[in-house]
């Protein structure tokens, strides 16, 4: 860190350049395969869903893995993002980007609104309260006939691989940068020991709400991408089972590990796609795998460790392991 003061643009270092290069390669390869028709629509959809689930998992991890708050209402925020972006696009004839931003902001606002009363609760109580709130959100959309109600809501398809991929990168970078800032450390201290954090001058309520709102915002963004990609949304998609699914990805990858969440989201999405022809058996296999992984590796695949490229930069005192 000491040499960073001398460096005019510390953001430009070898590690970040290599990460950017790798991202461009992944993006480019998929883009080329897609335009040549080698990747059919099903595989493209799987890749885009993987991007959406990465956003969901990483933002859930911010709340649960880093801040230590077991909230199971992510599907609710996703629903808000999906419906609100669709509302702007379909009902207001607004631009897609405007819809995505609006959806994410409304979800963040809902996060603050829900967070202030419920984040005082601990552990399982918070879990069940947020699960309930997520279900309330779903039931509101179920009864909201203006937005399609139970029959669902059609949204023109405007998202593609380019959008999904770079929005995913943006989300991961923002959350990663937050985690590696002093404000992110304040959130982590809540997970570690709430009373000690408070005694060290951290306003724990404030940071819980910030983490919750930031997490909700990206869940809303993911919902917006989903709605503008899938043609059709309906409330049933956003039930608490979806929240479970997201939580499972996070725990599978490792709580408190961003790269772990990415891995968890990709594994689950790809596994679902590979087993798509046998839907019931698919769920049974996923369930059994989940139980086995939890029994033999209860901290997830990566634990709190990050898979990182720090070996690319010679070790300096206090250097953080972020990717940007």
């Amino acid at each position: 860190m000491s040499n960073m003061g001398k460096n005019k643009l510390p953001i430009v270092n070898r590690k970040n350049i290599i990460v950017l290069f790798l991202l461009l390669v992944v993006y480019g390869v998929v883009q080329i395969l897609q335009s040549n028709g080698i990747l059919d629509r099903f595989y493209t959809m799987t890749l885009i869903l993987a991007c959406i689930y990465i956003i969901l998992a990483v933002s859930q991890n911010l709340i649960t893995g880093f801040t230590g708050q077991l909230a199971i209402g992510h599907a609710g925020f996703m629903a808000i993002g999906a419906y609100m972006s669709a509302f702007i696009v379909v009902k207001m004839n607004g631009p897609v980007v405007g819809g995505l931003i609006f959806g994410a902001l409304v979800a963040a606002f809902a996060g603050v609104l829900i967070g202030i009363p419920t984040l005082r609760l601990r552990g399982d109580y918070l879990a069940i309260a947020t699960l309930g709130l997520g279900e309330i959100v779903r039931i509101i959309f179920l009864n909201w006939d203006y937005l399609g109600g139970a029959t669902g809501f059609q949204v023109p398809k405007s998202m593609n691989w380019t959008w999904a991929f770079w929005l995913m990168v943006l989300s991961v970078v923002v959350i990663n940068n937050f985690i590696n800032s002093s404000h992110g450390r304040a959130c982590i201290s809540i997970r570690e020991n709430e009373i000690a954090a408070e005694a060290m001058g951290i306003n724990t309520t404030k940071y819980k709400v910030i983490a919750f709102a930031l997490g909700a915002m990206f869940a809303g963004l993911a919902g917006g991408i989903y709605a503008n990609y899938m043609f059709f949304i309906q409330p049933g998609t956003f039930s608490f089972l979806k929240s479970f699914e997201i939580l499972v990805m996070v725990v599978l990858g490792g709580l408190g590990s961003i790269t772990g969440s990415i891995l968890g989201a990709v594994i689950m999405t790809v596994a679902s796609a590979l087993l798509a022809d046998i839907p019931e058996l698919r769920m049974v296999i996923i369930a059994v795998l989940l139980i086995i992984i939890m029994i033999f590796r209860p901290n997830g695949i990566l634990g709190t460790k990050e898979f990182n490229l720090s070996f690319l930069n010679p070790k300096k005192k206090g250097e953080e392991n972020g990717i940007t």
Binding site: L247, V248, M283, V284, I286, A287, V288, L290, I291, M294
Partner: peptide, 9 residues
């Protein structure tokens, strides 16, 4: 998470 897995199972 294991309980959720068992539920799906």
């Amino acid at each position: 998470i294991t309980a959720i897995g068992m539920s799906f199972f």
